[in-house]
Design a protein around this nucleic acid. Structure first.
Length: 883
RNA sequence: GGGUGUUUAGCUCAGUUGGUUAGAGCGUCUCGUUUACACCGAGAAGGUCGGGGGUUCGACUCCCUCAACACCCACCA
């Protein structure tokens, strides 16, 4: 047999094992039928940068699931991929260009997009490597990219189809504009934050009178675009102002006072200036009252010519100051109050979002959401944890139309063309006619306008929101819209696993688009994991500089340790506090498993075998089989609940405590090789989904002579043998360990050095028969020179005594025995027992308890009472003897 | 303004349908016999389970309420 390294050194093992998996194509799905498949799509990673802990937790959980399902005999498809990540990627490339003093306009669209593709290639390669480093057993042969040919075809198809069903439309609306990214954003890409600002009170005079109305606003610069002042119709203060004309200060334009229910009389002065071009509520009111809309802020965050000569070209914050000063100068600024309100920020670059009126493309969401909601109602879609269903439903209930066009260059350009006004005719005979300006939405680029035959047509320069393409991911990855074999076999997916932070961005869109295009929920179960936070519970971010690099953790402690640290102690949907000490702890565990295996293989010798059902020889054998099968039962149960943390925790607990600390120690004298091999093999199989590298490497030791050992990754996951689980055996073993632990405890308390062996006499009552059989093991683990086991007997003089339930333990340590110390020790034991007695007595003294509680509960209490009373009696007697 | 989650030992977390003397790991303290492991082993200290109220024979567990923290949603001018 090859020497097994004294410590597990991940660096030496991981590459070798990765390669073996790759050669064996363990991740490649080749199902025989649709019945047995398990499908899961990897959330496509952004090609913006390197692997972070968010990816690490995603990959870990998904790989655990994939490996578990594979070992259970499922035909697993876990499909990897990457996302072009529109704004995000464009931003990083632009930033890079800026370092060279270049803007995207300097390069032009075509050159710029070429640059982004170069970036994509580089980072795609890098992130793929890192995914492999995590141990991800996905199917690389089916890898997809949101912007590759097939996925682009799917996007076009989807867009055109939605347009034909009138679920996509073009309209001029107030949208969220990011002046830094210079594009519109959808509503969910805007992050709202409470910010301290000012509330400015401005006085507007009624035309040709000295009566006036004071309005309150947080954005005084928008007053240049006011087209009305609104008050609540039931507000007596303003009743007779309604219908009057006001003079808009600075601009000196007449605007009228209108009445609208939506005005809250309690806020500010109860009068609102209406700027339909720059405020969502104003836009609504403006629309309903047919007010004109005057755009005073342009797309670059600067004032337009409509703001007036004095302000045109001014950046927003400057314009604000200038307007305020002007108003103050002319005496129309009443006062300024501090005011906190929520301000929208770009989720990509954090710039303040400007509401801007603009012509954009929208997806009509209500009909799509209705389909998604009905899937939830029909239980075609299950959430883990369940509470996310509520959130999902609530969001869909209140859904608003989705702005999908973006003023970017990196992404799927809209399959939309416009017939230009200035004609370029195909048919020279109708030269004089103007282009009809129609909108052409088509899968294939049209050569001419289908209506007027105009050749002067141009494609819409905008691209689609990244999430539009990722919304098609569960089926676009399988070849949709073509009816491929993959699509027929693997759709719908079984599970969708991702972080809860993209429930709306991604999950909801997939469900809606999946329902629309395939008539089905794209997956049966949505499993949502929590976010990885730092040890203080803060989000990891570049600005806080509290990020931990998973690659550095892998370098230092190994992938297995990192994976465990992300899974153990985590619950679905709950954030995870991560710290390096967790990884260290898990590294220690992997090493423990490594060494326990090293010991076992040493015992097994040159021809190790894996017995399927070895015969137990004694209590420890029966006990470890009972514990093992209980573990298998519980692990499988935890997996079906998606409680991965629980499963991993239980396996660790078993390995460390039951297997290493007790079973290996207790059987060292005369190990049962077959059983040892069996238990280890089962441990490796159980642990493999969590700890793939170390377990795979250890597994090889079962086949020292095989040229190509069978891979653990392709083994069967253990099934519990329920007949091996025995309460009685576990109880008996508990008595054995109790004796050992009690003796060790006393030794420690009395400072008996471990090297010194001592004698012990134990009276064990009804446990006599099996304790006698374990005398050898007890002697060894308790460091005894001799051990006498009897049913009962005389109290042993000059001995340290310890009493447990049904047990009397005497350690004749005459030389060491100090009556004072011994008395103190016994008194402590006595006090503890008396406290417990009080608790039990109180319970039993309650007649309601004995009358109403179930019989077995009452009996259990009575048994407790009897045993603690017996213990107390013994301790008291002992104390008396000591005088 | 709505909604959700969290609150258990110094720290990170387990605690199944209500019945345990409330557990584990890290950290702390004491001690080191055993060629699997010091990335280890043995032992110990440490908790009125966020506060209050209720249901119940019995509440860490169910209900109400309050508090702190975190997050999500919302057109608070």
């Amino acid at each position: 047999m090859e020497e097994i390294a004294k410590a597990y050194i991940p660096g030496e093992v991981e590459n070798e094992i990765s390669e073996k998996w790759e050669v064996a194509e363990i991740g490649k799905a080749a199902p025989k039928s649709k019945k047995n498949v398990f499908t899961m799509m990897m959330p496509p990673a952004n090609v913006t940068g390197a692997l972070h802990l968010g990816h690490a937790i995603t990959l870990t959980i998904e790989d655990v699931l994939a490996r578990y399902q594979r070992m259970r005999g499922k035909d697993v498809l876990w499909l990897p991929g990457t996302d072009h990540a529109g704004i995000a990627t464009q931003n990083v490339v632009e930033k890079r260009l800026l370092e060279k003093g270049l803007s995207r306009d300097d390069l032009g669209r075509e050159m710029f997009v070429t640059k982004v593709w170069e970036w994509k290639d580089k980072y795609h390669a890098r992130i793929s490597e890192q995914i492999k480093k995590m141990g991800a057993s996905c199917d690389w042969s089916r890898e997809a990219f949101t912007l590759d040919e097939d996925r682009s075809a799917a996007v076009t198809k989807a867009f055109v189809q939605l347009y034909r069903k009138k679920l996509i439309y073009r309209d001029k609306k107030l949208v969220n504009w990011c002046p830094r990214c210079k594009t519109v954003l959808s509503d969910i890409e805007v992050e709202h934050r409470e910010e301290e600002g000012n509330l400015y009170f401005i006085r507007y005079f009624v035309s040709a009178t000295d009566r006036s109305i004071c309005v309150a606003t947080t954005r005084p610069e928008t007053m240049l675009g006011d087209t009305a002042v609104a008050v609540n119709p039931n507000d007596p203060r303003y009743r007779d102002f309604v219908g009057k004309e006001l003079i808009l200060p600075i601009v000196n334009r007449e605007i009228s006072v209108i009445a609208d229910e939506r005005v809250d009389p309690k806020f500010g002065t109860g009068a609102v200036k209406i700027t339909p071009a720059h405020d969502p509520l104003d836009a609504e009111i403006g629309r309903d009252h047919k007010l004109p809309s005057i755009v005073v802020i342009g797309p670059h965050g600067k004032m337009t010519k409509h703001a007036g000569r004095r302000f045109v070209g001014m950046p927003l914050n400057e314009a604000r100051k200038a307007v305020v000063k002007y108003l103050d100068d002319i005496g129309n600024l009443e006062k300024i109050e501090k005011h906190t309100h929520s301000v929208g920020h770009c989720s990509r670059c954090d710039a303040t979002i400007e509401p801007l009126e603009s012509m954009q493309w929208f997806v009509k969401m209500k009909p799509l959401a209705a389909k998604a909601l009905s899937l939830v109602k029909k239980k075609k879609l299950e959430f883990v944890p369940a509470r996310f269903e509520k959130e999902f439903v609530r969001w869909l209930d209140e859904i608003r139309d989705w702005c999908v066009s973006r003023q970017l260059w990196w992404g799927h350009q809209l399959p939309v063309w416009y017939c230009k006004k200035v004609p370029e005719f195909a048919d020279k005979r109708i030269r004089k006619k103007e282009g009809c300006q129609r909108i052409i939405v088509s899968e294939k680029p049209p050569k001419k306008c289908p209506s007027c035959k105009n050749l002067n047509i141009t494609q819409d320069p905008d691209v689609l929101d990244t999430w539009f393409s990722s919304g098609l991911w569960p089926f676009a990855t399988l070849g949709w819209p073509k009816s491929t074999k993959d699509f027929r076999t693997f759709y719908p997916n079984t599970v969708l696993e991702t972080g809860y932070d993209i429930l709306f961005f991604w999950v909801a869109r997939m469900v809606m688009l999946g329902a629309e295009f395939t008539g089905k929920s794209p997956f049966e179960t949505v499993y949502l994991h929590g976010l990885v936070r730092d040890e203080r519970g803060r989000k990891m971010s570049k600005s806080l500089n509290n990020g931990i690099d998973p690659l550095e953790m892998i370098e230092k402690y190994g992938t297995d340790a990192l994976r465990l640290s992300l899974v153990v102690g985590s619950t679905p949907g709950t954030d995870l506090k991560f710290s390096e000490t967790k990884v260290t702890g898990q590294r220690n565990f992997v090493n423990k498993l490594w060494n326990a295996s090293r010991y076992v293989f040493g015992v097994l010798g040159k021809n190790p075998t894996i017995a399927a059902n070895p015969t137990p020889r004694g209590l420890p054998d029966r006990w470890i089989l009972s514990k093992l099968n209980r573990l298998i039962l519980e692990t499988n149960a935890a997996f079906t609940k998606y409680s991965f943390g629980e499963a991993a925790g239980k396996i660790q607990d078993f390995v460390w405590n039951d297997f290493c600390d007790w079973y290996l120690e207790i059987t060292k004298e005369a190990p049962n090789k077959k059983l040892l091999g069996h238990v280890l093999a089962q441990i490796l199989r159980l642990a493999h989904p969590f700890i793939p590298f170390a377990t795979e490497k250890l597994w090889e030791n079962f086949f020292p002579k095989a040229k190509k050992p069978k891979l653990l990754a392709l083994e069967k996951f253990p099934r519990p043998v329920k007949s091996r689980i025995s309460e009685r055996v576990e109880e008996e073993m508990k008595v054995v360990t109790a004796i050992i632990t009690s003796i060790r405890s006393v030794r420690n308390e009395l400072n008996v050095e471990p090297a010194r062996k001592i004698a012990a006499i134990v009276y064990v009552g009804k446990f006599e028969s099996f304790i006698k059989k374990q005398a050898g093991e007890i002697k060894k683990l308790a460091r005894l020179s001799s051990l006498v086991v009897k049913k009962s007997g005389k109290k042993v003089e000059n001995a340290v005594a310890k009493f447990e339930a049904g047990l009397e333990i005497y350690l004749p340590l005459s030389k060491l025995l100090d009556p004072k110390v011994e008395k103190k020790r016994l008194n402590a034991d006595l006090k503890e027992a008396q406290n417990y007695l009080a608790v039990v007595e109180k319970k039993l003294a309650n007649d309601d308890f004995t009358a109403r509680a179930p019989k077995n509960v009452v009996e259990a209490e009575r048994a407790k009472l009897a045993s603690v009373q017996e213990k107390i009696t013994k301790i008291e007697e002992r104390i008396k003897v000591l005088g």
